[in-house]
Write a protein that binds this DNA or RNA. Structure first.
Length: 229
DNA sequence: AACACTGTCAACCGCGTCTCT
DNA sequence: AAGAGACGCGGTTGACAGTGT
């Protein structure tokens, strides 16, 4: 049988120091990612493998974009969230250089509120008449919803809303064709295992006729999704 | 200037799934 | 086939920064 991931007494917790970061970077540059269980000891770090993995994926990876989200990224997150729900890793997989944690944080701190301010329920992306809709009155809103206006133009809200209601007898919500422009590159296999991605798309029954190497452009291929939630 | 409140984000925790023995 | 460890994910927490009073 395998050994436990780490001895909890011997591991550091909390914020990472620059030295720790450097050790992790150096080690992964030399040996590559993976084998997180043995990595801390091999790299001379008093951290558990889980913590190392998180630090690398969320912060140290060289292909991370960081900085503010662009409007098109915001739109894409909102669209994908309407389709996938809180499947942050899948959503982040469509945003090159972004991590699931980053997307999740951005959703919770910015996008959720933005939708609420528009009177849209962030949970189901439907217009919610019981929510406040200051739309034109609030200057902050009119400014901040510049990108979301394109959202409305795409009829995402109504589309998402209608299919959320359109439940099949089996209890699954079947999504109609959706003109979802997913013209983003595929996630790197380092950030999201290819096999895992494949597997999840199978589970989600996404059928955009894609090969792994193809850029994901699914306008009319139209993700026909069967959500299992 | 000092305090309270709010927002942001890195990191942790627990759980489900996968993989290995 | 079963059980245990490893991995990955989503939810939550807590420290810190920024803003308001």
């Amino acid at each position: 049988m395998r050994k436990p991931c780490c001895d909890k007494e011997d591991t550091n917790k909390g914020a990472w120091s620059k030295q720790e970061d450097q050790k992790l970077i150096d080690y992964i540059r030399k040996h590559g990612e993976g084998c997180w269980r043995t990595l801390p000891q091999a790299a001379g770090l008093l951290r558990c493998g889980k913590s190392c993995r998180l630090r690398w994926i969320n912060y140290l990876r060289p292909d991370l974009k960081r900085g503010n989200f662009a409007e098109d990224e915001e739109d894409l997150i909102i669209k994908l969230h309407a389709l996938l729900g809180n499947r942050w890793s899948l959503i982040a997989g469509r945003l090159p250089g972004r991590t699931d944690n980053e997307v999740k944080n951005y959703w919770n701190s910015h996008l959720r509120r933005k939708l609420l301010n528009m009177g849209i329920d962030p949970n189901n992306h439907r217009l919610n008449h019981s929510l406040p809709r200051p739309a034109h009155k609030n200057p902050e809103n009119s400014a901040s919803t510049a990108s979301t206006s394109s959202l409305m133009n795409n009829q995402l809200v109504s589309d998402a809303g209608s299919y959320m209601e359109d439940k099949s007898p089996s209890g699954l919500a079947t999504l109609p064709n959706l003109n979802l422009d997913l013209s983003m590159g595929f996630p790197s296999s380092s950030s999201l295992g290819v096999n895992e991605d494949e597997d999840k798309e199978k589970k989600l029954n996404i059928q955009p006729n894609l090969s792994q190497q193809q850029e994901l452009v699914a306008p009319s291929a139209a993700a026909t999704l069967v959500l299992f939630r």
